[in-house]
Nucleic acid binder design. Structure first.
Length: 290
DNA sequence: GCCCAGGTGAAGC
DNA sequence: GCTTCACATGGG
């Protein structure tokens, strides 16, 4: 499929379970082992069951999204142009809310590689074993809130998640206990859903916005992490430090209806540009064209 | 050793 | 309201 950069999409820090494998990607979607391969003009998928209905995977990958229309709606400035040039096929996935929420509770002040390691340990220890094709490594589902509600904080700390363990445990218990119904948020306005997420321990504005964007698909949700903050400060407020209100007004208005997409492009642009500057020449072209 | 990583919550002004 | 700090752990 053109304009779908599978590698950038699966490895750019929105989902944490995809692993490269012989020119393809292996992961778990909706409790099923999946292998994805990008041929340039199309994406092919392999699962263990001969499934004829692929709507669940098309929804996850957001195949139907008109990327060009979204990119055309980005603000026409040097920074956004460079970000789009740097990675034109980058997409947003539509993930399971609980997996997304739990993963980002584990994400605070962690590098993406480390988040992947923690999530892998968590799944390996508490996730249900899934059927995989012969010759492939054992793979586990993402553990349910009910399963995690029954473990101890110490069990979770053994997955290397440190101080995030009590947050994940309390959130799992809140959801398993029925005090918060994640499926209900899908029908809410953005602001209301955000308020519900913010009630969970360990969930602040940034993590809430990640879940709203990556799982619920609110296109205007705009997570601001250290990288995006760096982008905003350097590219749009180079002189003085903006107040929180000023920054909020800017991100809510300047980037348009699909601000969340713009955010993901800025995020990816800053990270790849930074790694290029550290002497790893991959995607060095990202710095050209301003 | 040092700084940083897709932050949050609590304490102190 | 805003600023500072602790919180685990690992990579560069």
């Amino acid at each position: 499929m053109r304009d779908y950069d599978l590698a950038a999409t699966l490895a750019s820090g929105q989902a944490f379970r995809w692993q490269p494998h012989e020119n393809s990607w292996i992961g778990v979607v909706h409790g099923r082992w999946v292998q994805l391969h990008s041929t340039g003009s199309s994406i092919t998928a392999r699962t263990i069951s001969s499934d004829e209905n692929w709507s669940w995977l098309e929804h996850y990958l957001q195949i139907e999204t008109d990327l060009n229309a979204i990119l055309a709606g980005f603000p026409d400035d040097d920074a956004m142009r460079s970000a789009v040039i740097a990675c034109r096929g980058l997409r947003l996935l539509r993930q399971d809310p609980w997996e997304c929420l739990a993963s980002f509770i584990l994400s605070s002040t962690k590098q993406i590689v480390q988040i992947q390691q923690i999530v892998a340990l968590l799944c390996q220890r508490f996730g249900e074993l899934l059927p995989v094709p012969p010759g492939h490594q054992p793979t586990h589902a993402f553990p349910t809130p009910e399963r995690l509600a029954g473990v101890t904080e110490s069990d979770l700390r053994n997955c290397k998640m440190g101080f995030r363990a009590p947050y994940l445990l309390a959130s799992a218990r809140t959801i398993a206990g029925g005090q918060l119904d994640l499926s209900r948020l899908a029908g809410m306005p953005l602001a209301e859903a955000r308020i519900e997420l913010l009630k969970l321990p360990g969930v602040g504005p940034k993590i809430a916005d990640c879940v709203l964007l990556f799982a619920y698909g609110f296109p205007s949700a705009f997570p601001v992490d250290v990288w995006v903050m760096k982008a905003l400060r350097n590219l749009y407020f180079p002189r003085r430090k903006p107040t929180r209100l000023r920054l909020q007004l800017f991100t809510e208005t300047y980037f348009g209806q699909n601000a969340g997409y713009a955010q993901q492009y800025l995020f990816h642009y800053m990270r790849t540009r930074s790694s290029a500057q550290r002497g790893q020449p991959k995607l060095a072209a990202a710095t050209v064209g301003i």
